[in-house]
Design a protein around this nucleic acid. Sequence first.
DNA 1: AAACTGACTTCTC
DNA 2: GGAGAAGCCAGTT
Length: 107
Amino acid sequence: MEKETAFRGEVYKAARRIPKGKVTTYGELARLAGRPGAARAVGFFMKTNPYAPKVPCHRVVASTGALTGYSARGGLKRKRALLVREGVKFEGGRVDMGTSLWKGNGN
DNA sequence: AAACTGACTTCTC
DNA sequence: GGAGAAGCCAGTT
């Protein structure tokens, strides 16, 4: 899969900007990529992301802070473990929005 | 080119 | 806040 479209590049670039211990939503990522509303497409890129170690796809969660799919081994369990290890706060199995939510706006 | 699918988001009950 | 339905976008077949 070497079909790198401009949008894909933007999404991956934005995802790499996510600081450690923080998480962002697919919608926000899509917005940073320049296509607000393309949250669904963003999720697709994470699933088929050719830059697994470069793109911290595990730092991308749903708007409600709930963790969604994860292609890598371990699935959502692994994803949650990674976030917790990085210092992300969890509330009732969901990411603590307002505390560990990163906004790439000010950058 | 058309249709289907998917790691989403938002509205309403 | 949880469950159900509709709308969106891009990629894949």
